[in-house]
Design a protein around this nucleic acid. Sequence first.
DNA 1: CCCCAGGGACATT
DNA 2: AATGTCCATGGG
Length: 220
Amino acid sequence: MSYKKSLLSVYQTLLDLYGYQNWWPIDAEYHRLIGTDPREEIVISAVLTQNTSWKNVEKALENIKRYGILSLEFIRSSDEKTIQELIRPAGFYRLKAQRLKEVAVFLNPVDKVKHVKRQDLLKVKGIGRETADVILLYAGERLHFVVDKYTQRFMERFYGIKGNYESLKHFFEEHLPKDIKIYKEFHALIDEHAKKYCRSSPICKDCPLKDVCISASPSF
DNA sequence: CCCCAGGGACATT
DNA sequence: AATGTCCATGGG
């Protein structure tokens, strides 16, 4: 039998299951050695990961670190063609080189992430709702919940909530404590769970949440 | 061969 | 407002 678990208890359950994910991943040692700002890696990787596997993003980040500098100033001062070649493994490389240029110019200095309005961030070409919220939450330490494809899929299956981006974002922000750590980890935990069980072709049979999910039938 | 991956801009209906 | 198409590499 299924019932509606509170959003916070879903978070607790996922946290118990998978542990802290420590998103957004950054190479702290690199930035300590080079003297660059770790927040700039978050901004760059947020653009690179658009509809792209993290594995491919990592290859691009390694290229930038090896042949350039993982910073927004490097993006600003480098030839766009050079950036294209470095980030090629991340896919959509011509498009993303352009987007990196735009955001690097806009977020100058990067400390702007602390006070920039979401509305203004969304005006930057290549920065949509999810990328904006990733930048605001993970680089700016600001209370913006990140909704992605996984989150939409999970919420539709688990709660039967469909909704557009803004309504889902609002749902999370209304039903969770105003806690940056919870926002960061919950988003990561949903992604982890969606990769393991709540896939496009869901594996409900072994899903740890099957008893509290409204769409998981015991017959699955 | 297929489908999918930590989306977004732009056009069409 | 909802849906379709394009962008592109790499892995399963």
